[in-house]
C-alpha cells in the first residue's frame, strides 16, 4: 500500500513507524504539511497516489485542518477530522466521555474569573485548572488555595490568548502517584504503561518513570468505550486509578462504579515510551492495523 505520513516534525514515533512501513515494503509519501497548499476542491499533489493518510502533525492546528481537507477530498485519513476535533480540545474530550457514560473527573467550565472562583469554591482545594488546548502537561495548574486560584485566573484573563479565558476546572483526583497510558487501535489495547512521579503531573514528557501495566477487564472495557466515544482510531487513552475498589463508589444515582477515571483521549499519540517500557511492538501493531484499514477501504 501507499501510505502518506503527514508531519511537520519527525519524532522518534514517526521514525519507528516509517521504518516498520519500509521493512514491510510499503510505499511511503512523507508529506511535510508546512510545504503544502490546500485548495477547496483539488488535493495537493502529494496526496495523489496514497491509499491512506496518517495524520502525525505535531501542531494541533495543522492536524485539525489537514484532516478536514483530506476528508473533503475523499481521501481516507487516520485519525478522522472529527476525532482530532474532539481530542484536541479538553472541553469536547470531556463532553464526549461523559456522554458515552465513561467515568471521567468532574469538570466545570467558566468564562470569567468570578465564575471560575465559584467553581473552585464548590470543588474545594486542591483542584486542577487545565488549558483547553495543549499537551505534555504544559500550563496545568494545581490550585491549592483561594489566593493562588485568584492570582492564576487574573493572570490568564489579563495575559492569555482567548482560549485561556475559557477556564476548565477539574476535581483533583488523588491518584496513587501514577497514571495509566493505553495505546489502542479502534479500542483494542496494544499495550499499557504507568507513568510514575513524585510530582502531581505524571506526563512522560515531564520525565515521569514508565513501567508496563497489565490491564484488567474493567480497564479494557473503559478503553474500548473511550475510543468509541471519540470515533476510534490510533489513540492514547489516559486513565487514573481512583482508589475506589470496584463497586464501592456511591455518589450520584447514575454514577458508574469504577476503579478508574478516564481523563483524556489523545489523537496524536506518542508511543515511543510505551514501545520501550512494555513488551509490545507498537509500530508493528499500527502497521497491521493500517493494512487492515486499507484492505477494508478497497474492498
Amino acid at each position: 500500500m501507499n501510505v502518506g505520513i503527514c508531519y511537520s516534525r519527525i519524532r522518534r514515533d514517526e521514525k519507528l513507524l516509517l521504518s516498520e512501513l519500509r521493512d514491510r515494503g510499503h510505499e511511503i509519501e512523507k508529506i511535510d504539511v508546512r510545504k503544502q497548499t490546500f485548495s477547496l476542491s483539488e488535493p495537493p499533489e502529494a496526496f495523489a497516489d496514497v491509499d491512506v493518510l496518517v495524520d502525525r502533525c505535531l501542531a494541533t492546528s495543522r492536524s485539525l485542518y489537514t484532516t478536514r481537507f483530506a476528508e473533503a477530498y475523499g481521501i481516507p485519513i487516520v485519525n478522522s477530522a472529527e476525532t482530532a476535533a474532539i481530542c484536541a480540545n479538553k472541553v469536547r474530550n470531556s463532553l464526549a466521555l461523559e456522554r458515552a457514560g465513561v467515568p471521567t473527573p468532574a469538570t466545570d467550565v467558566a468564562f470569567t474569573k468570578e465564575s471560575a472562583m465559584d467553581i473552585v469554591e464548590r470543588f474545594g482545594y486542591p483542584c486542577v485548572l487545565k488549558p483547553v488546548i495543549g499537551s505534555w502537561g504544559r500550563l496545568m495548574a494545581k490550585l491549592d488555595s483561594e489566593s493562588a486560584a485568584e492570582a492564576i485566573f487574573e493572570h490568564k484573563e489579563t495575559l492569555g490568548h482567548y482560549e485561556h479565558k475559557v477556564f476548565y476546572i477539574q476535581e483533583f483526583v488523588d491518584k496513587p502517584g501514577r497514571d495509566i497510558r493505553v495505546v489502542a487501535l479502534d479500542g483494542e489495547p496494544v499495550g499499557a504503561m504507568v507513568r510514575k512521579s513524585d510530582h502531581w503531573l505524571t506526563n512522560a514528557a515531564k520525565g515521569a518513570e514508565t513501567e508496563e501495566f497489565e490491564l484488567d477487564d474493567e480497564a479494557r472495557e473503559l478503553v474500548a468505550e473511550a475510543s468509541a466515544a471519540v470515533g476510534g482510531g490510533l489513540l492514547g487513552v489516559d486513565l487514573m486509578e481512583t482508589g475506589e475498589p470496584q463497586g464501592s463508589q456511591s455518589s450520584g444515582q447514575d454514577a458508574r462504579e469504577s476503579g478508574y477515571t478516564v481523563h483524556e483521549v489523545n489523537h496524536n499519540v506518542e508511543f515511543k515510551a510505551l514501545n520501550e517500557a512494555a513488551d509490545v511492538d507498537v509500530p508493528a501493531a499500527v502497521v497491521d492495523w493500517l493494512e487492515d484499514t486499507v484492505a477494508g477501504v478497497e474492498s
Partner: peptide, 11 residues
C-alpha cells in the same frame, strides 16, 4: 535551526 515549540504542539 528547528522551529521553536508552539503552544498547540503535542499529542
Amino acid at each position: 535551526e528547528a522551529p521553536e515549540l508552539e503552544e498547540d504542539w503535542g499529542e
